[in-house]
Design a binder for these strands. Structure first.
Lengths: 199, 199
DNA sequence: TAGCAAGTTGACCGCGCGGTCCGGTTGTCG
DNA sequence: CGACAACCGGACCGCGCGGTCAACTTGCTA
């Protein structure tokens, strides 16, 4: 399959340095962080970045791939948990815990997604859908909420706390809990608009 | 007070053209919309933009001023409504209805706010605080939710629907209702993090 | 209606970005 | 150990941005 021979030792090391440097830089400055800054942080020349990732988008995609795959893995694990409601909440907690905001804003921003990232995204959506279905079947969340709803609301907690210049690092937990209470069956009022379909 | 004489007729007209052109351009493309595009849309030279608004930030601030003032006016009106819970919901609806996302993302983005915008913002926060207090006193929302919480959650509905490339224009109503249900007393679970203080 | 300040315009500037390229360096393998 | 391919680095390019300016046009007023 992959006829490419393994990377040279220094190249592999630099690739790893770049990935972690880019991840932290994107987390701090958003996706607008410059490639030059990332290279400097990794202690590497700018050309090296483009040797490993022909485009800035490719670099972002490489990070997004990791994050989505990890999160999807957590979700698939949670599908086997006993308490379906707690499982959904745990998934949303995991989603917020890592810098998930980066990922989804990229999924939205990118004009055309690489095929494999697209596939990963759909796999993640399917996991969310299943988690929501199970939670609904257990009566843990209201009937009129869909997987698409949860996928959209997923990173609202991170987004919301982003408005504060010096937010406590765990403040998102408060808004995740608040939003999750809105998903519960108790005190639910009918929703005024039909749910969207994703992609 | 204002020793400045009134604008010339064409200048006043151009100023108005620019404000509306900028508002629609920002709504469509976000705050990254270029000044040149705004000028072209207004049918005006680029230099004219900078004559009226010395800086792109000044242009944004002029629009934000209008929006915040209008929204605050609506809120102060609603403070006199009979049903405090419905009043809060109506305020949040009004906030989402106009492109509120622009405003707050600017309030966050801008390094230093012009003094009058800062004052307007604090006045709006006070109105939100009062609306929330009244709603809480009437038992329409849970005890542990503060004005700061509502201010942060305010534009989450718009943000969340922004992920969809072709979202129905009223989809935000669905998520406003969902989030508002989370603010209600019924089925409330204790919140895991103390509320923030704004600014 | 004459004249001037106020207003307009588009060419122009500096800057930082993503991306390219080639001369020098270094891991690797026979 | 030698030699080559893989790799590195930073000077360089084109582009589009926010912002400036000097020459030109135009609404106001005496």
């Amino acid at each position: 399959m992959t006829g490419t021979r393994p990377l040279r030792a220094d190249a592999a090391r630099n690739r790893e340095l770049l990935l972690t440097a880019a991840a932290t830089e994107f987390a701090e400055r958003g996706l607008d962080a410059s490639v030059a800054d990332i290279a400097r942080r990794a202690g590497v020349g700018k050309g090296t970045v483009f040797r490993h990732f022909p485009t800035k988008e490719d670099l972002i995609a490489a990070i997004v791939r990791d994050r989505i795959a990890a999160l999807t893995g957590v979700g698939e694990e949670l599908l086997r948990a006993a308490d379906a409601g707690a499982a959904l909440l745990a998934f949303l907690t995991a989603a917020a815990h890592q810098r998930q905001q980066l990922d989804l804003s990229y999924l939205q921003t990118a004009t055309t997604l690489p095929a494999d990232v697209e596939a990963l995204r759909e796999r993640m959506f399917r996991v969310i859908h299943d988690l929501v279905d199970r939670a609904r079947a257990h009566g843990a969340i209201r009937d009129d909420v869909t997987g698409a709803d949860v996928a959209l609301l997923m990173c609202a907690p991170n987004y919301v706390t982003g408005y504060l210049s010096d937010a406590p690092p765990d403040l998102w937990q408060r808004y995740l809990a608040l939003i999750f209470d809105g998903l519960r069956p108790e005190g639910a009022h009918p929703l005024p608009h039909p749910p969207p379909t994703l992609v």
